[in-house]
Amino acid sequence: MIPLEKIIVLNKVPLFSMLKTEDIHMISTIASEEAYEDGHVLFKEGDVGDKLFIVVSGKVMILKEQSGEQKHLATLKENDFLGELALFDAETRTATAMCDGPCTFLVIERNDMEQLAHEYPAIAFGFIKVLISRMRGMINK
């Protein structure tokens, strides 16, 4: 994936969409492309999260264990993202994510993101803005 394509994908992710293109460009330098086969488990419920996954192509099933069975909660597709909270804390994953067919992702690791946000506070402010607007949205619901 060329850097411009990474920027295009990141720009479509709500978490980054409020950032300036210059900031998205910076983030694209720490986003790596990863491809997985059908059935690959990205993370399991209870794992400690440290990565954000952005679906570039393919589908991802979100599963949650209920009464010993895996219940299908949702299917994520192109430009959806999962595990965004892992960029801000090291809490455990609340569900399992599994590839439904071959998938390609852009993956951002928390440590890289922290380093970037430390060097470019505008990026951190951009995130805070997005999180606040989400919080307001939740309050108003």
Partner: peptide
Amino acid sequence: SKTHELISKVLQE
């Protein structure tokens, strides 16, 4: 084009 939104954003900036 996939770049449509990105171009909009750059122009805006």
